[in-house]
Design a protein around this nucleic acid. Structure first.
Lengths: 239, 239
DNA sequence: CTGGCGCCTTGATGCGCGTCAAGCCCGGGC
DNA sequence: GCCCGGGCTTGACGCGCATCAAGGCGCCAG
């Protein structure tokens, strides 16, 4: 691909556009965005490609431009625990910037994705010169902390049914007509809920028999969102 | 209590001493420490006093000078999930500094404690002027992220025995002679491990029968640390 | 000393769910 | 058309653990 000045400009403005839409950089002046875009790298990832592995030294942090990136840990037993799936506009791995122990988890594209790598050294320099950027980074990391705390909450929901209800309520809010498109296979959803595909299947069947949802091949349709929430509260109440 | 210049000086130098020993501020020049100490408040807490509650607007962040502070969430079922127990030299609630949604958890002293409150506004100002302080805050928050990720790991250790072994190995390292003093009652430890006091009691009894530990009223003594680690690996291996 | 009250321990029971295993459905290759 | 493999479902079974319940033990007050 030729990199004429014109093409480079186009690429740059494209980057700046995505950065402006990201939670981390939104509202930052254009010149700062251009500066950051100037030393950032664009990565094209196929489904299944790894962005980084646990323990690797930090190369920088990442901004998802399109697609989806699954951040996860593998336990000593070889099981994969999903921490979060990052989508367009979200940034990840800021934590490794300021730490010497490398990335604390693994990241892998679950779809074909384009990701921005913002290298460590220049961004640390820039943070030194732009205190408000530092505050943004702090804010972003605190958001990630909240995600993890939320995960803890989920894991203390003992019931698989409760975790599933919680998931349905959360994802049903953002889905039009209550139709939730599954990110991948149902086994993946099961993993995200910390259970097996068999148990997920049974639990979905139970909710379907109660006319709360319908289950398609790659979709789940919420028929009665309030009833779902009510059932969730009931489960919690009797815990 | 009279606040003569001399007494104020003494108090200040005391504060600076503890700050110098903290992970967050260690290595910072004395004038910065004095500046921070100047606008910080010292709080005396009795056992059971709350530092803050979930959802409250952030007043600032905290540095434990002595004692112990339990950060936890209460689930919808009313159960208390311990996130971390902070002890002397550790800082907490940095995350709420840069976020508008207030504290994400509750904090309560589990012993009589003295805690430094570093108010939000002046420390944000200072971060603006001292970029290296911002980097420290980022580092501190990334350490907290790691703690949470570690908790996730623990929770995915399915066995209570595995979680307990993990806990014993971790705490046995820092304990002299393998004698671990329990932070509180055994029911508290059970909660920290995410189980009931009955099951904890049974599991401790099993390890005692295997001559791996001895159990006292408020202490657990590790007799064979390598054997504990071996048993943990065995549990993980067959998962 | 005696009663009451936590805390810990131990036994019995039931339930959720992980696992193995078998059958079903659907799409792709030949 | 056929076959075959992967994903999904459903059944059977066992294990770990929460729960209920009862008893022992230390502590403090009366």
């Amino acid at each position: 691909m030729p990199t004429t000045p014109r093409a480079a400009d186009l690429k740059l403005t494209g980057l700046i556009g995505t950065m402006r839409c990201s939670q981390l950089f939104t509202g930052l002046p254009t010149e700062d965005l251009a500066l950051i875009a100037g030393f950032s790298l664009t990565l094209q990832l196929a489904k299944g490609d790894y962005l980084f592995h646990e323990g690797e030294a930090s190369r920088g942090f990442y901004l998802v431009q399109s697609g989806a990136v699954n951040v996860h840990r593998v336990s000593a037993t070889g099981k994969e625990q999903v921490i979060h799936v990052f989508r367009a506009g979200e940034s990840l791995a800021e934590a490794a910037l300021a730490s010497l122990t490398g990335y604390p988890a693994n990241a892998r594209a679950v779809e074909p994705s384009t990701v921005l790598l913002i290298p460590k050294a220049p961004v640390l320099d820039l943070i030194g010169q732009r205190p408000d950027l530092a505050l943004r980074m702090l804010g972003s990391m605190s958001a990630h902390l909240r995600v993890l705390v939320g995960m803890l909450d989920d894991l203390t929901l003992k019931d698989v049914e409760s975790r599933l209800l919680n998931w349905l309520v959360k994802h049903g809010r953002t889905a039009a007509g209550g139709v939730i498109k599954l990110p991948g296979t149902k086994r993946v959803l099961a993993a995200e809920l910390g259970t097996s595909s068999e148990t997920l299947s049974r639990t979905l069947a139970r909710l379907r028999d109660q006319k709360l949802i319908t289950v398609g091949a790659r979709t789940i349709t919420v028929l009665a969102a309030p009833a779902l929430a009510a059932q969730l509260r009931r489960n919690l109440g009797e815990g």
